[in-house]
């Protein structure tokens, strides 16, 4: 399946017969790829190296859903919405 992000932030998945449908699922939080500057900022904020962050696989379907083409060493920001509140979580691509 191919996926596309709509302007509203929802995700569109393309079926084989080219019909699109939205895939906004309650389990999937928003993933964002950080630029190099943002990445440095984050690592400085926590005073850690990128190896100390939790990991995410390069071929993770979550990245594919948001059309992120990540390479090894990139940092992904995940906007989590937990029962305890909303916050950002970070993962390094491996």
């Amino acid at each position: 399946m191919d996926y596309k992000i709509t302007a509203a932030g929802g995700i569109l998945a393309k079926k084989k017969d080219e019909k699109t449908f939205s895939l906004e699922h309650f389990l999937i939080p928003v993933h964002e790829l950080l630029s190099d500057e943002q990445k440095k900022e984050v690592l400085l904020k926590f005073n850690i190296t990128e190896e100390q962050l939790p990991k995410i696989k390069k071929n993770d379907p979550g990245l594919k859903l948001f059309n992120i083409k990540a390479k090894q060493g990139d940092v992904i920001r995940i906007k989590r919405k937990d029962p305890t509140g909303s916050y950002d979580y970070y993962r390094t691509v491996i």
């Binding site: 699922h25 389990l27 999937i28 939080p29 993933h31 995410i56 696989k57 993770d60 379907p61 979550g62 990245l63 594919k64 859903l65 995940i78 989590r80 937990d82 979580y89 993962r91």
Partner: peptide, 15 residues
């Protein structure tokens, strides 16, 4: 869930 939606969704599913 991990296979189709990814690790973050799987984590939410476990919770």
């Amino acid at each position: 869930v991990n296979k189709v939606f990814g690790i973050e969704a799987a984590r939410n599913a476990i919770v």
